[in-house]
Structures are given as C-alpha cells and as structure tokens.
C-alpha cells in the first residue's frame, strides 16, 4: 500500500506543523514548525528538557501532541500509525536507535538480533544471511556473531543495535543521543558510519550534545529552547557567533 503517491514534493520527508506539547502544567513545545528533507543530516540540539526526545517520541507515535501535526512523506504520521499495514511500512522506512540500547536487544545471539527485522520481510534466508554479514562488516563485529547481546560491552551493544536497524534498510534513521557514554574512539567510529550512511542517501536525525564532533557532518541543526525549535543550516550556525556560542554550550 502506498499513501504517498499523491505527494508532489517527494524531497520533504518530515514536516512539523504548529506542534504543541506539554506535560500536565509544563509546556515543552509551543507551535513548532520546520521541515526535514531527504538526504539531510539533522542534529537536534538544545538544553535538557528542551523537547528533543519528546519530539522524537511523537515522530514515532509513542507520545501524542496536544495540537499540530507531523507529516511523513506528505501524510500525517497518525494516519501511518493507525493502520497496522502502514505502520509496519513506516517502521521499515523510519529506523530508531534508542538511547538505552538494553531495551533494544532481546534476542539470544547477535545474528538473531540483526536478522529479526529482515526475517519478517519475507526475504530469502540466503539474502538475510548476507544482510546480517554486511551489517556486521560495517562495524567490524563479525567475531561477535554468535555472542549473546546482553553480555556485550556498552559500545558493542550500541553498534549491534544500529546494525539491527540498518538491516531493515530504512530511509530515515533517528538516533537518540547515540554518542553518550562512549569513548572518543567509539564516538568517532559511529560518526564515521553515520557520515557514510548520509553519503549514500540516508536521512539522519540525531539528538546530540557533541557539537564539536558533529559540526562537519551535520547539514542542518534544529535548535531547541524556550518551548521553540528553529531549523538552521550548517552555514547559518557556523557564521553566526551568537548561535555558535549557544550550540557549543549544549
């Protein structure tokens, strides 16, 4: 089923329209508007409690906004998620790496973990095996194929979780603070993969506080604060000393 056929502007992936959200008496986001286009590498930056993760949760349908809409490929995300068939299509196209990877790994071996998604897509077993091996190759994790994900180190767990997302071949990859708790080397390794994925056309949306490490990768930034979120291009951020100061402090 394709509900995006009537969409003229295929470059627009996510459109956020007048989005408002709050927890009880605390207003988090107030009438937020911006668009994320295909192929962009967008970093969500802002203070803690600024609404970055909240927006990600809303994009996945786990939180419901008070007003406003989120559109994916021209259709409301609610519409995508209300239909079981479309919902699965949406989840194949929009992959997510959660901040707490322990919740994302539940299979008994690394192989099964990565093959979990492709196995549901009626892909021949041989191709599934190829995909799993390719995903392991990207991170250099082939030696861990038969290991139990639960017993891996924090960095390895994150890479396996990302490999299991990549195995679905999503168009968009949402990353909720993927660099937190990693060594400098591991952060560099992950960022290299993110850069490669973006270069082959994947749209990356990443929540991060490491401006210094992502400033050459990100094509755009969404800066959260004061119940608002403003999208800026890399040039706008780098050329505006005030903006540069703000994002550096996040």
């Amino acid at each position: 089923m394709d509900i995006t056929e009537n969409t003229n502007d295929t470059e627009k992936l996510f459109s956020i329209h007048n989005l408002t959200f709050g927890y009880q008496d605390k207003n988090v986001l107030n009438e937020v508007n911006f668009t994320i286009n295909r192929g962009e590498f967008v970093c969500f930056m802002g203070p803690n409690g600024g609404g970055k993760s909240t927006l990600l949760q809303m994009m996945l349908g786990f939180l419901k906004q008070q007003s406003g809409d989120i559109f994916y490929k021209g259709c409301n995300v609610t519409e995508w998620l209300n239909d079981p068939q479309l919902k699965r299509e949406y989840h194949q196209q929009v992959g997510i790496l959660f901040q707490n990877v322990d919740i994302q790994l539940f299979n008994s071996t690394v192989y099964d973990e990565i093959a979990f998604g492709p196995k549901q897509m009626d892909i021949p077993e041989e191709e599934i095996e190829n995909r799993v091996n390719d995903c392991l190759n990207i991170f250099g994790l082939n030696h861990l194929k038969e290991n139990v994900p639960y017993h891996l180190s924090g960095g390895e767990k994150r890479e396996v979780a990302l490999a299991s997302v990549l195995a679905l071949n999503p168009d968009v990859i949402l990353l909720d603070e993927p660099l937190v708790g990693l060594t400098y080397g591991n952060r560099a390794k992950l960022l290299r993969v993110f850069g490669q994925l973006n270069h082959i056309g994947k749209t990356i949306i990443m929540i991060t506080h490491y401006f210094d490490q992502v400033k050459d990768l990100a094509t755009d930034y969404v800066i959260f604060g004061n119940h608002d979120a403003q999208k800026k291009t890399r040039a706008q951020v780098l050329e505006d000393p005030e903006l540069l100061q703000i994002v550096s402090e996040y």
């Binding site: 089923m1 394709d2 068939q85 699965r88 299509e89 194949q92 196209q93 897509m121 191709e127 190829n130 995909r131 390719d134 190759n137 990207i138 990549l166 679905l168 071949n169 999503p170 168009d171 490669q196 994925l197 270069h199 082959i200 056309g201």
Partner: peptide, 16 residues
C-alpha cells in the same frame, strides 16, 4: 562508502 553494501544504497520498496 564503497564498503557500504548495494542493498543499503538502494531504496527498499517494501510493502508488507
């Protein structure tokens, strides 16, 4: 990016 597999470069075109 040459090390990226071909299936990951192309759109999936998957309809459940």
């Amino acid at each position: 990016t040459d090390s990226m597999p071909q299936w990951l470069i192309h759109d999936e075109n998957y309809h459940p």
